[in-house]
């Protein structure tokens, strides 16, 4: 009973928040609604007994990803209204729904056709975090290490891409110096 109430409450809230994210014309509203939707999704994970996944969802998504987006939004001109593509709304919504149903059908078909056996069943007497750790550090150790290397590469790429000219501040330079710097950059790009 409580599970059903919680499921429908979180489902309604998540759908409403994500709907706001894709329809609003204010970037700040979209960011806040997306962060709220992420937290509501972690509610589903707690209902499903995946406690560690729920905690990771809150920490990584609302803690790191949303903070990164908020930080990135400071660079962009987000105060103005966001323009939208003009297109047939029915075609867009119809195509989106059709492809979503197709994706779910592709994933659900092998599950329904054959009886699925649990490869790594939950261990008796161990909590969710403990069993996740047991599986992650035995069967999924190599994907785990590869993911670590991927995150390292992404970190280096982020620093290299965003950290150019970080040693000098644009607010402390006057207009001529900035223009001169731009001209040098353009010369480098063109040559």
């Amino acid at each position: 009973m409580f599970e059903a109430v919680a499921f429908y409450l979180f489902a309604f809230l998540t759908i409403a928040m994500f709907f706001i994210t894709v329809t609003t014309s204010q970037a700040l509203y979209a960011l806040s609604a997306l962060a709220a939707g992420m937290i509501f999704i972690s509610g589903f994970f707690f209902i499903l007994g995946a406690d560690f996944l729920g905690a990771v969802q809150i920490i990584v998504y609302t803690g790191a990803v949303m903070a990164l987006y908020a930080f990135g939004m400071m660079f962009f001109d987000t105060t103005r209204e966001v323009k939208e593509k003009k297109g047939n709304k029915f075609i867009v919504v119809g195509l989106a729904t059709l492809s979503a149903v197709l994706v779910v059908a592709i994933f659900a078909a092998p599950m329904l056709s054959s009886n699925v056996l649990a490869l790594y069943p939950a261990i008796e007497g161990a909590g969710n975090t403990q069993s996740v750790g047991l599986v992650l550090f035995t069967k999924y150790l190599i994907p785990f290490e590869v993911a670590a290397i991927m995150l390292l590469v992404a970190m280096v790429a982020g620093i290299v891409l965003a950290g150019k000219k970080m040693d000098l501040s644009l607010t402390l330079l006057n207009a001529e110096e900035i223009e001169q710097m731009d001209a040098e950059i353009n010369k480098k790009v063109l040559s």
């Binding site: 939208e84 867009v92 919504v93």
Partner: peptide, 16 residues
């Protein structure tokens, strides 16, 4: 997923 796809199709701003 459908909501996300609608967003991908109709948004023009890359951040959104």
């Amino acid at each position: 997923f459908a909501i996300g796809l609608v967003g991908v199709m109709r948004r023009k701003n890359l951040l959104l």
